[in-house]
Nucleic acid binder design. Sequence first.
DNA 1: TTGAAAGCGATACCAG
DNA 2: CTGGTATCGCTTTCAA
Lengths: 373, 373
Amino acid sequence: MGKPPTTLRDIAKALGTSIGSVHRALHDNPGVSPLTKERVLLMARTLGYRPNLAARYLSSKKTLRISVITLQGTTSFWDEVRTGIRQAAGSIPLENVELDFRTHPRLGEGDEEAFESAINDNVDGILTFASRPQVLRSWIRRASRAKIPVVCVATDAPGSGRLGIVGIDTLASGSIAADLMGRFHGTREGSIAITLFDMGITEHAEKCAAFESTLASFYPNLQLLKPIEDHDVEMESYNKCRKLFEKFPNLSGVYVTTEASIPVLNAARDAKVLDRLTIITTDLFPDLIPHIRSGAVAATIYQRPRAQGQIAFRMLHEFLVEGASRSHQVALAPHLVMRGNLDFFLHRQSQDSFKEKVHEAQEPAHGLAEDFA
Amino acid sequence: MGKPPTTLRDIAKALGTSIGSVHRALHDNPGVSPLTKERVLLMARTLGYRPNLAARYLSSKKTLRISVITLQGTTSFWDEVRTGIRQAAGSIPLENVELDFRTHPRLGEGDEEAFESAINDNVDGILTFASRPQVLRSWIRRASRAKIPVVCVATDAPGSGRLGIVGIDTLASGSIAADLMGRFHGTREGSIAITLFDMGITEHAEKCAAFESTLASFYPNLQLLKPIEDHDVEMESYNKCRKLFEKFPNLSGVYVTTEASIPVLNAARDAKVLDRLTIITTDLFPDLIPHIRSGAVAATIYQRPRAQGQIAFRMLHEFLVEGASRSHQVALAPHLVMRGNLDFFLHRQSQDSFKEKVHEAQEPAHGLAEDFA
DNA sequence: TTGAAAGCGATACCAG
DNA sequence: CTGGTATCGCTTTCAA
């Protein structure tokens, strides 16, 4: 078996100093001479000191405040992410975690303000959706400089100094979509369209590339058209699709890489091409359900928002508590939803949200108000 | 904000007794008069006492021993389950958990002995594969009577008094398999075969029923043949399949609901029907990889053994620590693996086992020896 | 059967 | 700047 773990006392004794100084040194609190600090740090390392979390929680009364800066969203995606975060926070056995939801209504509206207020409040950590990486990068950097770790959900902000990122594996998503498209379509010739938010978003460009590459390797009978950018604007999506359907009457499939599938479906319906298209969408939300049931949507790639929220929370929490986490990049495998297994996913969603309501009723949480407004 | 939580002291003060008696009463330790015990229990309830876990871990030196009774297995499935269990055990922040692996080489060989020794060792909890529900039921019941909670992985043992079950949702698996089979096959007529271990296993019967039902609702052009039982015996599987292929020359697809897909593939190859069959398999292991790459296997339903192991461990641990867990039945959604996203899953497996090796090197764990024999 | 008290390891405060 | 110490809530042991 192992020998008993090193404690603050052990370090203090070994150095002939006091437990108080050791503590201050390890937390670089004010009031330690550089010399003692150095010696303590060294000794802690050589003795392999690991703080005893139980003791820490017991004696310290402070609570971790985590700010969740996300989008309201037009589908349930971000609601699910927030639910996942709440669930994960609720299942931390000891520890008081306070979640601070700063939900902004629209893309690029209020996100900067939310960051500013979170940093001013000096929260302990931030979970966020880096909707506009180029704009938010500097905010994330500011947070990091203020020693506030930031974990991005769904979309990465590369080069921003963020602590970590949790998202769906873009390669797996794009590839499985292509594979399904190819198998569903058979061996005859055809052309396929793909829609996305903007090629400037890393994740979207990657999905697109993966889709294209898998299609090219395994299904050379299918030709991929130039990607359609919708910028999450309904009319833009609808109009571009209408044009597309007119221009390519032999179109045989569409892969919608974002949540914005409803305008595409409407355009297809209005152009009367719905029943000869193989449509593969992304995510699962109420408005999409009838289209899956009817078979108009052959399959949808579910990005597991709840799991993303849970994992992002755990990653941040682990870092805050242990000072490190085992992995700072998590790429989840998406789930595939079709007519047959649709009910499984719907049932699970509703069951979980029921459970959560019960939980909240027993134990009213803090900072949740705006999330239900 | 909330008022300070109730402590043992609060209960003692309110009752005019000592903190020691309160403690003994709450843990029904010997040496408390029935009267005081009653009063303590009542007061604890009315004051809403919740034990402070940090304080508990800090003062108590005892370690939780969990016995893992699983199959060696012919594929990597159970290795992955055990890896998941180890990972989950390793990420418990505080707490000493000792895992005791009792791995038996073959179905129905050594599982009863393992249960007996676990119960005699008086472990704190058991994670197990209820391979033969009818036989193991009485062992699980014995464990439960000895106050040892049992969580089943992959296969349930209904009516055994087990604490919980973690598995793959059979309905989602069977349905998605049918949906894919139907979509891949197109609209022409055809017949489909299904193989399973034994209709006596609940999970297999359910998958089969879900497959049949989805096929019937959405793809009436496909006819499902009578299920083939292989009992996980290679020759049985191979021979039955050879016969099947001879008898039904117009067979167009096979759904293998268990890990036993290799004999089916061999039979199809030897019968020279491989290239006109749509084959959907279950799970992901080294021997299957080339068949997925070659396209012989159109898709495989990955049962996420590692996730199953992790969740089973967490369920048991939560129960042992909190005295209850939020859910005792977890049905996971399976992942779909095809040529396109195969690399993602392979990469993830190898990456994770690498990480784990590193982890173990830093911090040698207990009771792992036989798992690497 | 019960009460009292000594830890567990870290935090935080106060006196030197 | 440093050393000492009360404290967190529970477990466990020792007396009574």
